[in-house]
Design a protein around this nucleic acid. Structure first.
Lengths: 345, 345
DNA sequence: GGAAAGTTGTACATCGTTGTACACAGGGGC
DNA sequence: GCCCCTGTGTACAACGATGTACAACTTTCC
């Protein structure tokens, strides 16, 4: 930062004094206002360069009511899905001239509530929020009026714009894929007892629907609940499944990390994947393309989700009066080695 | 956000009017100033609650010259090492009451230069920066005076605080581990031709030193350069190594992602790890603890790095006059299956 | 020649908050 | 009764940028 003789960073005032013009004229130059003679403009520009002037964004924000900063609230940055999503959001936001501030909630109710209550004051212009613990009711109670876009779960009739994928359909597709391979004892890892956990609930529903369609029973011991969606949880769940008197011949994991944990557990038990047990994940994180074996997975279109979210926010900043949008981003199923083995072998 | 009848968010002025006191008194209540009678305080508090007043952080920042926001500039958020590091930094910053804003540079010179030049104006109080492309010379040229802490590489005599690990020693330890296992044809993946790439340079140096200590030759065809440090780069490099007339019996990869890519490539070639080729990585990302086989790796103490960086920044905010610190965070070597196989099997 | 229109720059108020200076009350000590 | 203290609250200026109003000057056109 440039500094004046006194040692403080330069402000418009200092530049104006040095250039011998008014503060407003410097402001006009900085903002590219057209009615400034070239001689004045270059004189001001020289002063700006000399002092290394940078506008004070806080002052500008105070005056204009905008900060061009948005917040992205996520459970955990080191869950690859969210890291990849964050990357896309930052990229999209940048194209709009926005900076992204990250809020890590750890999926805790109280922290998510803080985010929703506008913990950031008017520091941010908008919020993209991927809730884990909060449900529709909490959102209804929200009083903060910062524009909000929700990601991930499907909160029906929510009070905010919403980008999600069709969890039920995708879960059904994943399970149907296993059925199509001839698997009959299909387990699911990732159920969550909390009623607020929409995601788990919907994926479970899709799983059950696919089983029903295939005329297969839903065996309660094949539905394994977990606390979180980490590798360790997947491994622990897999352990329980393999300990059953009649272990499953396929497992549908509600995210890739758990699937990778489950694969590792199978490996340690000497249970070959996919021969004895096929495994499907969800998220299409890059890790699953290099794992051994590579991971069959539900692929949400992360870039599309990010760009939709950012675009919604942009629209909301322009005009807050529209009714909330509810959009479903596309998904595909990437079939890889963990269900079909290595082709040509 | 609370709103007044006019529809705007409430400010101190609105609260003051409603409570029948001066603006400053409301400010005093908000900031917990002690000399306020209980009756006044509760009257103000009622007004605050009624209007759902939230302080305007931009105004506060303008007045106080602090924003309690710091920036963390990283190459890519979806490189797990950086995601895990970011998580730790956010956690440490939070304990100090700071919010973290993420800047993604993609390792591009121009973007790193922008970060260094203070692209954020005075929006941030400090910057934690992990440069890839910039070297010591660029840092010397810096004119922005926002407190800065550097991460990752070792820029000798830099003008800023610096947290690094001893790259040479760690690389030597990793290579020596392979030597100790009886490997004699040890390759390295991750060299980078650019002179600015300190990290690659130092790790290569450690590798060479360890080979020299063991009386082994440094074979140029065993040192594979890469563009980036992603899985795909590791896989491509491994392909080249396995195509050699005399392929290596061990590979030291300069990060875990490349090691995982290399393992995948070995698997596709039918080359068993670690029997025919042992693999070592660097970063200790969680993925390597669940991969098949699990990955032997250099473990930088990420939490310590994060807390050191944040503490340095805190000290720098308090007093900018101290000379720059240069600290080396500890590392360990986690020996796992990719070099020693599965114990008890 | 003079009025109208356009150009270029200035002065001032303002955004919401907080630091400084001070006013005013009540209480205690002489 | 006087002074001084402490406690409580107020008025005002300031942080740095920008929108508004307008002054000074030029150009254009009848």
């Amino acid at each position: 930062m440039g500094r004046t003789a006194s040692g403080d960073p330069a402000s418009l005032k200092h530049v104006a004094a040095l250039a011998g013009v008014s503060v407003k004229t410097v402001s006009n130059v900085v903002n590219g206002y057209v009615h400034v003679t070239d001689t004045t403009r270059s004189r001001v520009q020289r002063a700006i360069d000399e002092l290394h002037y940078r506008p004070n964004l806080a002052a500008r924000q105070l005056r204009q009511g905008r900060s061009d900063v948005i917040a992205l609230a996520l459970p955990e940055l080191d869950l690859p899905y969210f890291a990849e999503l964050a990357r896309s959001v930052i990229k999209c936001a940048e194209e709009k001239g926005w900076t992204v501030l990250i809020d890590q909630t750890d999926g805790l109710v109280e922290r998510e509530q803080l985010v929703l209550d506008g913990i950031r004051g008017r520091l941010i212009d908008g919020l993209i929020f991927s809730p884990i613990a909060l449900g529709a009711a909490d959102l209804e109670r929200r009083r903060d009026t910062t524009p909000l876009v929700l990601l991930g779960e499907r909160v029906f009739d929510g009070p905010a714009d919403h980008v999600a994928i069709d969890n039920v359909a995708a879960a059904r597709a994943a399970t149907a894929h296993l059925v199509g391979l001839g698997r009959r004892r299909i387990a699911a890892i990732g159920a969550q007892p909390l009623p607020t956990s929409q995601t788990a609930h919907l994926r479970l529903q899709g799983y059950q629907e696919a089983l029903a369609e295939a005329g297969l029973p839903v065996r309660p011991e094949y539905v394994v609940p977990v606390d979180r969606y980490h590798r360790g949880d997947g491994a622990a769940a897999m352990r329980r499944l393999l300990d059953l008197p009649e272990p499953p011949d396929a497992v549908f994991c509600f995210n890739d990390l758990m699937a990778l944990g489950a694969m590792r557990e199978a490996y340690e038990r000497g249970v070959p994947v996919p021969h004895d047990v096929a495994i499907v994940g969800w998220d299409d994180i890059e890790e699953g393309r290099y794992s051994i074996p590579t991971l069959t997975t539900v692929c949400p279109d992360k870039q599309r989700i990010a760009s939709l979210a950012v675009d919604f926010l942009a629209a909301r900043l322009g005009d807050g009066s529209e009714p909330p949008h509810e959009v479903t981003a596309p998904f595909t199923l990437a079939v890889r080695e963990s269900t079909v083995g290595r082709p040509g072998r």
